[in-house]
């Protein structure tokens, strides 16, 4: 049976909201939980030690915990926080850029690569496999066809590298040095007043024809539609996907996990996951189409 994972929280939530969320998640049927700030170095409601404490608590609840690193490393301070995660040996690390790869490899910490790591071919996986790679996430813009080929090639090479697929949530699509939330409020990034806290699921960016295009979330830009591969799970299982990643949202997440858990067990639910934050669904990337597209009648 495929594993379910909870990806790192991509939004900025208050310290209490984060603890409450993981308090509930400890009871959900997810196998793996990714912890850590992956978007903005100014988001410090939880310090690295807080994340480590949380990791130990969740591990004690039977969860497999992975520490996720910041995606866009820009400063010495960012590197210091990164080293904190890559210089412990209790947990696996999700490396989200080459800085993290370098530090993890140097410290001989086994790692997984996150969806923002550019893994497009088997040659790349082989290089990392020699240096501690334990699993990898398919980049979000790649789909079923490429994944099938990669899994087949890995098998041919006799390499056991479990593949994980971002399967539900707003897709992380870009990172900038500029903060788009601060820009919206006409604030400088260095004095952003942490306005992201007011937008626990980002800010909608729409075309002037009211089409939902993107979600602005600090320095990151996410998809405006929610990626949803629930109906593709049987396909994924057959292909040999190891883990199905669900991306945290601040409401209704328990229900989402429950339905994905049913589907992976072959008990199809009557309805799609609850959509407490309203957004159209999409699955285009999986079918090699524009990411925002929705291919209907699949599975």
């Amino acid at each position: 049976m495929m594993k379910l994972s909870l990806g790192p929280i991509l939004w900025f939530w208050s310290r209490q909201s984060v603890f409450d969320f993981y308090g509930e998640a400890a009871e959900w049927p997810v196998d793996t939980i990714y912890l850590g700030e992956v978007v903005c170095s100014r988001r410090r409601e939880l310090k690295p030690d807080d994340w480590l404490d949380l990791a130990r608590d969740l591990k004690a609840c039977g969860k497999n915990v992975v520490l996720s690193t910041l995606t866009l490393i820009e400063s010495e301070a960012d590197l210091r926080r990164l080293r904190k995660f890559c210089e412990q040996d209790e947990f696996l690390v999700e490396a989200n850029d080459q800085s993290a790869l370098q530090v993890a490899i140097r410290n001989r910490i086994p790692f997984i690569t996150g969806p923002s790591m550019n893994i497009y071919n088997t040659a790349t996986l082989k290089i990392l496999a020699k240096q501690g790679l334990q699993g990898w996430n398919l980049p979000v813009e790649l789909g079923k066809e490429t994944l099938e080929q990669l899994i087949a090639e890995l098998k041919h090479e006799d390499l056991d590298l479990p593949a994980e697929v971002f399967s539900w949530g707003f897709l992380p699509l870009a990172w900038s040095s500029r903060c788009f939330t601060a820009r919206h409020y006409n604030l400088p990034k260095d004095n952003c007043q942490f306005r992201c806290l007011e937008h626990p699921d980002g800010m909608e960016l729409r075309s002037r024809e009211n089409q939902e295009l993107f979600r602005l979330n600090g320095i990151s830009t996410l998809s405006g539609s929610r990626y949803d591969l629930m109906r593709e799970l049987p396909d994924m299982e057959q292909m040999g996907v190891s883990t199905v990643r669900l991306s945290p949202e601040h409401q209704g997440m328990g229900e989402v996990v429950k339905r994905f858990d049913q589907v992976r067990r072959g008990e199809a639910p009557d309805t799609d996951p609850l959509q407490l934050v309203e957004a159209p669904p999409c699955n285009g990337y999986w079918y090699g189409r524009p990411g925002m597209d929705l291919q209907k009648g699949s599975s």
Binding site: Y120, P139, E141, L171, A174, W175, S177, F214, P290, G291
Partner: peptide, 21 residues
């Protein structure tokens, strides 16, 4: 280019082509 290059998938989200692919 204001996004970190090499990790921007905005183009393939709206069309089927990106700088990476």
């Amino acid at each position: 280019c204001i996004m970190a290059e090499g990790r921007c998938y905005l183009s393939s989200y709206l069309t089927d082509e990106s700088p990476n692919t």
